[in-house]
Design a protein around this nucleic acid. Structure first.
Length: 779
RNA sequence: UGGGCGGUCGCCAAGUGGUAAGGCCCCGGAUUUUGGAUCCGGUAUACGAAGGUUCGAAUCCUUCCCGCCCAGCCA
């Protein structure tokens, strides 16, 4: 792969593919899936979808879309006790709303019950499964623990005929719940708990929302999922990290029975968001215990909640795209989600005027009965959209309480006694008088004067004021219920604290309902319509909203750099970002387990001493070689050919082992003699270490002698300055920008230049010489 | 203490031996009739740690540390 970033048509850099898309792309390029890529989104219909599911939906449908394949929606409905059609409808609705389409690909695992049953019979016939009559508790007790292996079930030895008979009778409903289960016969001693004869069918005399009373037995996820994938021709079965342990069984079952295709399971990290919870169980509890108003409560991270709150599908998709697909556990900040809804709505939402906490203002010099209709554009100049409405202006108006302060701090741009501010789309006013409640001292009203020359857009005054505030006309404003939402929990990780129940960590201020006032143009809004209430935030008319009783949800506030300034403390020097503390070295060298403590046979111990004392190898290296008999033999044979133990040991340890991984040494075409010859070539300056790696790679593949490969590939070292100089000059000439940077002091660019020279000589150049030459030219 | 995965900026995340991408956040500045938006600039001498190999290591080798997952007849 080339190092240069790919760009799209507009010259923007195309983001790199995530690891899953890379696999899909390579599989497709390799002709592995002539029928195209097939993915699936497999929700269990036992709850509502949340934003974590959105990540998976965007991945699965996105991959299908991008690579010209398809994505099925399959309900993983194998546990009738918890599932409900209510959820299947909500799930479909949510996915469509998010903007994805499964086309014809709507399936249920329960559609496959008959086929799944036949697979189970086949597995039994092949000896891969048995009916186990242990109780649930007994099965648990005999499964062992993560450190001890399990014990085999006494029923493990049942013959095929008996198993078949029992399984048939299970299917016929002859046994009560729990009497028997069907188990895969794998390995009770497997270090992977999932492989210790997992249960694959259980008896449940429960009606299924889809198949009714047709089945008294139901397959388990581990059995149904891979087989359903295979039946649908799924090529890439993408799931979350907690299923990594299940993959071994996934692959196992696909080998045991005759499946029409072989899907591959790939796991990625699920999405977590701070200040919320993302587990279905917890979400269900919040709903059932009525900590929230339902699955679509706008504080919930469910798609239904986000939708009702006013989030757009685009914002959620953009957010999912931005967090990427990887394998490390992560918790994304709420701020990142908020960024994407603001970003989307900034371009889409019309601006209107509304007041959350009204403060009355009387314009003392404005005529009593006069009303002006002021033209107010829906979008600011920087949003390329058209449209406007008129807003009525009159003698009595309401402004935001926060926009007046009797004793304004430094930097406050709004109204204060004697100060001026502009009313958005209207006039500049000055605060002349503050009317207070005699008893409480509370500010009841402001008496201000307006400057008639300053009407917006009139161009009759060049008066400049610092602040612009929003307002509504008292006589014309509409009352509206404003639901101001904040994060559901008061701590970033409510589920992560073992000391405290997450319920105690709910944010008591997650919903604040206020009676606000909005401009009259909003009289006819319909639920779902979104606006920016200028300077406050984005709002969405709630489903509860009617013409008589307007209700708006605050989707998200606007960014507020004034608030930020206030919060970090007025007058404070701007804070530099705090550098992370240097973590103390958690392991002092002395505490480390010394390599000598490892268990060695007497022969190995002797060998190790020999390597260390006589051959001069470092202790760790000596131990490593000595403790592996095959490697040691290989090493000793090599140093008989070329007597440089240290160099040979380095090659064996650092290079050979890197390629070896788990494959046995003798399966390679490489001989000890050949490796010794290679090291000799390096020691004799015939080839550079860099070129030696190319040679080594060839030796590993073909088993030829190093000298032959060197000649074939023409890899003899170039250590002659007159030959190298032109190359060096060419590299310097080709990279004027980097030369300039280097000369400005970015001297770590030397590595870049050396790399370029090495590359253009195919690794043949003597790197030390290249360094010298380069330095002479650049310095 | 078995096995399977992870660990690169405050939060995400590229990168697989040759210049530590990008986004969010943050910090400056320009602009602005939204303290919004936009624009421009800044922010990791360093990749969990320590050793080693190499001219050159986030990438290869060794040892260690930390986190997550697995003992449902849930998915």
């Amino acid at each position: 792969m080339s190092k240069t970033p790919k760009t799209d048509g507009a010259g923007r850099r195309e983001p790199p593919l995530d690891f899953i898309r890379t696999i899909v792309r390579d599989d497709l390029a390799g002709g592995k899936h002539p029928g195209g890529v097939v993915t699936r989104f497999p929700p269990e219909p036992n709850g509502f979808l949340h934003i974590g599911h959105a990540k998976s939906i965007c991945l699965n449908f996105g991959v299908a879309l991008e690579f010209g394949g398809r994505c099925n929606l399959r309900f993983d409905d194998t546990d009738p006790a918890k599932e409900d059609t209510l959820f299947v409808e909500a799930i479909q609705d949510n996915i469509r709303w998010l903007g994805f389409d499964w086309g014809e690909g709507l399936y249920n695992a329960s559609d496959y019950f008959e086929e799944l049953y036949r697979f189970a019979v086949q597995l039994i016939e092949r000896g891969g499964a048995y009916v186990c009559s242990l109780s649930e508790a007994e099965i648990r007790e005999t499964r062992g623990t993560v450190t001890e292996s399990g014990r085999e079930s006494p029923y493990r030895g049942r013959g095929v005929a008996e198993n078949l008979d029992l399984f048939t009778r299970m299917r016929n409903g002859e046994f009560p719940d729990g009497a028997h289960v069907l188990r895969a016969r794998i390995d009770m001693a497997s270090p992977n708990m999932k492989m210790r004869d997992p249960v694959i069918y259980r008896i449940r005399h429960v009606a299924h929302h889809h198949t009714g009373d047709a089945w008294p037995i139901y397959p388990m996820y581990d059995f149904a999922h891979p087989l359903s994938d295979a039946l649908e021709g799924v090529t890439h079965s993408l799931c979350t990290l907690e299923f990594e342990n299940n993959r071994e069984f996934y692959d196992w079952i696909l080998e045991q029975v005759d499946v029409p295709s072989t899907p591959r399971q790939i796991e990625f990290a699920r999405l977590n968001l701070d200040y919320t919870v993302m587990s279905k169980r917890l979400l269900l509890e919040l709903v059932e215990e009525e900590h929230v108003a339902g699955w679509d409560d706008p504080r919930m991270p469910t798609l239904a909640g986000l939708r009702r709150r006013g989030y757009t599908p685009e914002a959620i998709r953009n957010f999912c795209h931005s967090v990427g697909i990887a394998k490390s556990d992560n918790t994304v900040e709420m701020g990142q989600l908020e960024y994407f809804i603001r970003d989307d709505l900034n371009r889409k939402a019309p601006r209107v005027l509304g007041v959350e906490r009204p403060l009355k203002v009387v314009l003392t010099n404005y005529p009593e009965d006069s009303v002006e209709e002021l033209e107010a554009p829906y979008y600011p100049h920087d949003v390329p959209k058209e449209g406007s409405r008129t807003v009525p202006f009159s003698r009595e108006i309401y402004i935001e309480r926060d926009d007046f302060l009797e004793e304004p701090p430094k930097g406050y741009h709004r109204l204060a006694p004697g100060r001026e501010a502009r009313l958005r789309h209207a006039y500049v006013i000055r605060c002349d008088e503050v009317v207070k409640d005699a008893a409480t001292g509370e500010v009841k009203e402001l008496r201000c004067s307006y400057d008639p020359r300053t009407r917006s857009g009139s161009g009759t005054s060049d008066k400049k004021v610092q602040g612009t505030i929003h307002w509504v006309s008292a006589a014309h404003a509409l009352e509206a219920e404003l639901r101001l939402y904040d994060r559901l929990f008061s701590v970033p990780d409510p589920h992560g604290n073992p000391e405290r129940d997450y319920r105690e960590l709910l944010n008591s201020k997650s919903l604040e309902t206020v009676k606000g006032l909005v401009e009259p143009s909003l009289a006819t809004v319909r639920p779902g319509e979104r606006f920016q209430f200028e300077r406050l935030g984005y709002f969405c008319a709630d489903t509860d909203s009617t013409a008589d009783a307007l209700v708006f949800n605050r989707i998200v506030t606007l960014r507020d750099s004034w608030l930020k300034l206030v919060q970090r403390g007025d007058g404070d020097a701007p804070r530099r970002r705090r550098r992370p503390q240097v973590a103390p070295n958690s392991t002092a060298p002395a505490e480390r387990k010394s390599p000598e403590h490892a268990e060695l046979t007497p022969a190995q111990r002797g060998r190790m001493e020999h390597y260390g004392d006589r051959l001069g190898l470092a202790t760790g290296d000596a131990l490593l070689l000595a403790s592996d008999d095959d490697l040691a033999e290989f090493f000793e044979e090599a140093i008989r050919v070329h007597d440089n133990p240290k160099a040979v040991a380095n090659w064996v340890i650092n290079e050979l082992r890197a390629h070896l991984k788990d494959t046995p040494l003798d399966s390679l075409p490489l001989t000890a003699t050949a490796l010794a010859e290679l090291v000799a070539l390096i020691d004799g300056q015939t080839i550079s270490g860099n070129a030696a790696k190319h040679v080594f790679a060839e030796m590993l593949k073909k088993g030829e002698s190093p000298a032959g490969i060197v000649d074939q590939l023409g890899l003899r070292q170039v250590a002659d300055a007159t030959q190298l100089e032109p190359v060096v000059d060419a590299v310097i000439a080709a990279n004027p920008d980097n030369v300039a940077l280097y000369r400005q002091g970015k001297t770590n660019l030397l590595g870049f230049f050396v790399g370029q020279v090495m590359k253009s000589t195919h690794g043949k150049a003597n790197p030390r010489l290249v360094n010298e030459l380069l330095r002479a030219r650049l310095d």
